[in-house]
Amino acid sequence: MRRHEFQPGRLIAGLALLTAGVLYLLDSTGAADVPWFLVIPITMGGLSLAALAGMTTYAVRRDRRDRISESRDG
């Protein structure tokens, strides 16, 4: 399998949506009494954190790539 770069934003988004889905599943089966308005902040907060992590990762990788190209050029 070909290696790929780690993308923490996608991991955070997946975990947030998985958490919201599990909470919805627990509520629908009657195993837990989850208020309906709890899922929206979990989803939006998780997606916001994922966006922040994705932008940070992109900025760090771009800076590292620019430093390597500058050291090769001059």
Rank of each mutant, 00 (worst) to 15 (best):
M1P: 15
A31C: 01
G9I: 00
G21A: 08
V34M: 02
A59E: 12
G9T: 01
L38M: 12
E5T: 12
A16L: 02
A53S: 13
G74L: 12
L11T: 13
L17C: 06
G30P: 02
T56N: 01
D33N: 13
T19I: 05
R10Q: 08
L11P: 05
A13G: 10
R2H: 11
R10P: 10
P8T: 06
A53F: 01
Y24S: 10
M44T: 11
E70M: 07
F37V: 10
R2E: 08
L18R: 02
P35V: 12
G21K: 07
R65C: 04
R72Q: 11
L52D: 08
D66V: 13
L38V: 10
I68W: 04
G46T: 00
F37N: 14
A20Y: 03
P41L: 00
P41G: 00
L52P: 03
R62D: 11
S69H: 09
M55C: 04
P8I: 02
G54W: 05
T56K: 06
I40A: 14
G9R: 01
S69M: 13
G30F: 00
M44I: 13
I40Y: 07
G45E: 02
R64N: 09
W36S: 08
M44Q: 15
R65G: 08
V60I: 09
G14H: 01
L17A: 00
